[in-house]
Simulated assay, not measured.
Amino acid sequence: MYQCLPLVEKMISRIKSRSSKLLSYSGSLQLVKSVLFEMQTYWAHIFLLPKKIISIVTSGCRTFLWTGSNNCSRKALVAWEKICRPKTAVGLNVIDILTWNRAAICKLLWPVEQKKDKLWVLWVHTFYIKSQDLSQMETPKQACWLLRKVIDARKCLTSNDSLHKSLHQMTYKGEFSIKKSYLSMLGQFPKADWSKLVLVKGPIPRHHFILWMALYRRLSTVDIVAKWEIVVQQECVLCDTQSEEKFDHIFFACPYAKHVCCSLVNWLGYSRTIGDWNPKIQWLIQRISNSRPRDSILGFCFAATAYHIWVERNGK
Rank of each mutant, 00 (worst) to 15 (best):
Trp123His: 10
Val124Glu: 02
Val124His: 03
Phe127Asp: 13
Tyr128Ile: 00
Ile129Gln: 04
Lys130Gln: 15
Ser131Leu: 08
Ser131Phe: 08
Ser131Arg: 13
Asp133Lys: 10
Ser135Ile: 03
Met137Asp: 04
Met137Ala: 01
Glu138Ile: 00
Glu138Cys: 03
Lys141Pro: 06
Lys141Leu: 09
Gln142Pro: 02
Gln142Leu: 07
Ala143Asn: 09
Trp145Ile: 00
Leu146Asp: 05
Arg148Lys: 15
Ala153Tyr: 02
Arg154Ala: 02
Lys155Met: 02
Leu157Asn: 09
Leu157Val: 05
Thr158Pro: 04
Thr158Gly: 10
Ser159Arg: 06
Asn160Val: 03
Asp161Asn: 11
Asp161Phe: 01
Ser162Trp: 06
His164Val: 08
Ser166Met: 05
Ser166Ile: 01
Ser166Phe: 00
His168Pro: 04
Gln169Glu: 15
Met170Thr: 01
Met170Val: 01
Thr171Ser: 13
Thr171Met: 13
Lys173Val: 06
Lys173His: 14
Gly174Asn: 13
Glu175Phe: 06
Ser177Ile: 04
Ile178His: 08
Lys179Leu: 12
Lys180Ala: 11
Ser184Thr: 07
Met185Phe: 09
Gly187Cys: 08
Gln188Arg: 14
Gln188Pro: 11
Phe189His: 15
Pro190Gln: 13
Pro190Glu: 15
Lys191Leu: 12
Ala192Gln: 15
Asp193Cys: 08
Asp193Asn: 15
Trp194Arg: 09
Trp194Pro: 05
Ser195Cys: 12
Leu199Ala: 10
Leu199Thr: 09
